[in-house]
Structures are given as C-alpha cells and as structure tokens.
C-alpha cells in the first residue's frame, strides 16, 4: 500500500541532537496576508521555512476546529492572519475571527498549550516586510519554546 507520505530521508527522523525545527501552520486570508506573503516573496525577503500557509478566503472562515486540529496534529504553533480592522475584504470577517481566537485563547492554554503558540496578526496586502518579520519572529519564538506536547502523545 502506498503511504500518504513516503518516508523522507532527511525529515521524519531528525538526527539526535539536531536543532528543533518547528512546524507552524498559518491560516491566512487571500486578500491581505496571502498577498503580503506573495509580496514578501517577490521582494525576496528571507524567511524561516517553518511556516506553511493555508490559504483561506477570509480569516472569518477559520473554524476553531482547524486550529485545534492543527495543534493536535503536530503543528507546534498556529498563525491566523488577516486584514487590518476596517480593511476586511468581506467587511468584518476579521472581527469574527478575533472572537474565535479569543475563545481558543481561553481554552487551549489551560491545557498547557502555551498561549504563544496561537497567534493572531493583521498583515495588510502591502505589508510584505511585516509578513516576513512576523514569520521570522514567530518561528524564532516557537523554536525557543520547543516542540509542542501533543507531538509526543499518541492521541488525536
């Protein structure tokens, strides 16, 4: 049977003592932060490779389940990033996202998931530099925090 993922020679089993490379999932809106990420790329702004973008149309469609799933499924941290307040392409999706993130911030840290592992930012379409800086800061912060507990646990 084929595996979902073929075993990666270099990745699946890091060598003992190898530096911890966090996996960070970012739910970003198509109109602002995804565009900012494109701009950061076009402007060749070097970023740590740990952040993987999941393109959403709006942060307002980020179901709290997605964040929980990511954090239980091996992501060391989750970034949710959308348009600045007042700039939402869909009028106010980002405000709804903020409440949902707030809710999770009240729940997950109580179970030892460090609140620094869940980040909400506003990065506008023109802020390529801000996007790159956010990615680099966040990755550095999570590297320092170390791997998330759930990685060890055979729970899902």
């Amino acid at each position: 049977m084929q595996e979902l993922i073929a075993t990666l020679e270099t990745q699946s089993d890091p060598l003992p003592g190898a530096a911890f490379e966090p996996a960070i999932v970012a739910f970003v809106c198509n109109w602002c932060t995804y565009t900012a990420a494109d701009l950061a790329g076009t402007s060749r702004m070097v970023q740590s490779p740990n952040v993987r973008l999941v393109r959403m149309m709006c942060t307002g469609m980020v179901d709290p389940k997605y964040i929980i799933k990511a954090l239980l499924g091996g992501a060391d941290a989750v970034l949710v990033s959308g348009c600045h307040p007042g700039d939402c392409h869909y009028i106010n999706g980002n405000y709804k996202a903020r409440r949902r993130v707030k809710l999770l911030m009240e729940i997950l840290p109580r179970f030892g998931i460090d609140s620094r592992r869940i980040k909400l930012t506003w990065v506008g379409a023109s802020e390529g530099n801000e996007f790159a800086a956010t990615v680099n800061r966040f990755a550095a912060e999570i590297k320092e925090l170390g791997p998330i507990d759930t990685r060890r646990l055979p729970l899902l």
Partner: peptide, 8 residues
C-alpha cells in the same frame, strides 16, 4: 502539511 513534521 503536518505529515512530515518530525515526530519524536
């Protein structure tokens, strides 16, 4: 996206 996260 999380499949090749190095799991200990």
């Amino acid at each position: 996206l999380s499949q090749n996260v190095p799991l200990v």
